Simulated assay, not measured.
Amino acid sequence: MSTSAQLRAALVDRLTEDGALTGPEWRSAAGAVPRELFAGSYFAPVAGSVPTGFRAVREGEPGWLEGIYTDRTLVTQLDGATRPDDVADETVSGSPSSSSTLPSLVLGMWHQLDTGAGQRVLEIGTGTGYSTALGAHRLGDANLTSIEYDPVVGGAAAAALKAAGFTPRLIIGDGLRGDPDGGRYDRLIATCAVRYVPLPWLHQVKPGGRILVTLSGWSYANALALLDVTGPGEATGRFLPGFTSFMIARPHDRPPLPALDLLPGEERPSRVDPAALDNWTGGWVAQLAAPSAVRMGVGAQQVLWDVSTGSQARTAPAPDGGWTVVQRGPVRLWDQVERAVQRWQAAGEPHQEGFGITVSGAGQRVWLGAEDGPGWDLPI
């Protein structure tokens, strides 16, 4: 049977070969931090289950340690409360609410943050503490502060960090408000997604510092952005290559959804193929255009539902080819989405790295191509 050290070394080798792990400092961190202290028991998805079911994989059972040292995300909590040790040997359902993110993504984000010796970093979302441990190994405990919203999750992370020999500053609270004691940081890294960049972050990161955060929304489309802080409350940046997603921060999550009734409305032909929204960037562009909407469906049959106003839009194949859309309510959701998708298509359907973001006291704007190009305001 392979030991933890052997499995950890093998994972470091794989990540290095794949290009996810390049710097010697981060290779050292990945090789030193025992992930099993942070993941412990976890939920594994049950193949073929719809909706996705989960079974608990408990510490010490066959395959447990090998699963931890696979480059995958390990779900550690469902519905903000249920942990693997809370359930019997059965399949359970629920929405993942905490996890140990796949190591290649965690390490890749630390690389992208471009931290240096002596820099102070604020981490939003301690989670299991695995990312925190990697950062503490690289930067030193004194240079890292991490904030966790969930006190149960935060308590478990604190115990795991202590067991691993790390003592960074840990805070239980709303990380979207930043460090409650204030502070001046060189870098900020968020392991949760947000609908917009919280203003306290822009005042706690020094001008010349950087913020790495995933922008998401109520349709759960994600894009990773790296921002340079240009002044108090101001920043500009670009979105990065790849496909990064995180659970949205609980204060930014959408409200509970009542049962949806598809009601009659005004029908017209659609000027874009609704399947464009199934594209990673296409769905994100649609979310920028309709930030209060939830998107459901696939292919030609999409449903947009604005949870603020009750407005609806639904598409379907037209009998003679093309597509139709039915809209109702004060917000013409498909009109907004259609215009945004057409702009994106006219630009050649670039990945998210073709977009940028500007943040100031006047608002937060995502733009396509150049800063004076087509853009969308984030819902602050």
Results as ranks from 00 to 15, higher is better:
residue 53 G to F: 11
residue 53 G to L: 05
residue 54 F to I: 12
residue 55 R to Y: 08
residue 57 V to I: 15
residue 58 R to L: 15
residue 58 R to H: 14
residue 58 R to N: 14
residue 59 E to I: 09
residue 59 E to A: 07
residue 60 G to S: 06
residue 63 G to K: 05
residue 63 G to R: 02
residue 64 W to K: 04
residue 64 W to N: 02
residue 64 W to F: 06
residue 66 E to W: 06
residue 68 I to E: 00
residue 69 Y to D: 04
residue 69 Y to H: 13
residue 69 Y to N: 03
residue 69 Y to T: 05
residue 71 D to L: 08
residue 72 R to I: 06
residue 72 R to G: 14
residue 73 T to S: 14
residue 75 V to Y: 00
residue 75 V to M: 04
residue 76 T to N: 02
residue 77 Q to D: 05
residue 77 Q to G: 09
residue 78 L to D: 05
residue 81 A to R: 15
residue 81 A to P: 05
residue 83 R to D: 03
residue 83 R to I: 13
residue 84 P to L: 07
residue 84 P to W: 14
residue 88 A to S: 14
residue 88 A to Q: 06
residue 89 D to K: 02
residue 89 D to A: 15
residue 91 T to Q: 15
residue 93 S to A: 14
residue 94 G to Y: 08
residue 96 P to A: 04
residue 96 P to Y: 00
residue 96 P to D: 09
residue 96 P to N: 00
residue 97 S to W: 03
residue 98 S to Q: 07
residue 99 S to K: 01
residue 100 S to W: 01
residue 100 S to K: 03
residue 100 S to P: 02
residue 100 S to I: 10
residue 101 T to W: 02
residue 103 P to V: 04
residue 103 P to I: 01
residue 104 S to V: 05
residue 105 L to G: 01
residue 106 V to F: 04
residue 107 L to H: 05
residue 111 H to I: 00
residue 111 H to N: 01
residue 113 L to P: 01
residue 115 T to H: 01
residue 115 T to N: 00
residue 116 G to L: 13
residue 116 G to A: 15
residue 117 A to R: 14
residue 118 G to S: 12
residue 119 Q to A: 12
residue 119 Q to Y: 03
residue 121 V to S: 04
residue 122 L to T: 09
residue 127 G to S: 07
residue 127 G to P: 07
residue 127 G to R: 02
residue 128 T to F: 08
residue 128 T to E: 02
residue 129 G to R: 06
residue 130 Y to C: 11
residue 130 Y to W: 13
residue 131 S to V: 07
residue 132 T to I: 10
residue 132 T to V: 11
residue 132 T to H: 05
residue 135 G to Y: 01
residue 136 A to P: 06
residue 136 A to R: 03
residue 137 H to P: 07
residue 138 R to V: 15
residue 139 L to C: 13
residue 146 S to M: 10
residue 147 I to F: 06
residue 147 I to C: 11
residue 149 Y to Q: 05
residue 149 Y to F: 14
residue 150 D to L: 10
residue 151 P to N: 14
residue 152 V to R: 09
residue 152 V to D: 06
residue 153 V to L: 08
residue 155 G to W: 00
residue 156 A to L: 13
residue 157 A to D: 03
residue 158 A to K: 07
residue 161 L to F: 02
residue 161 L to A: 12
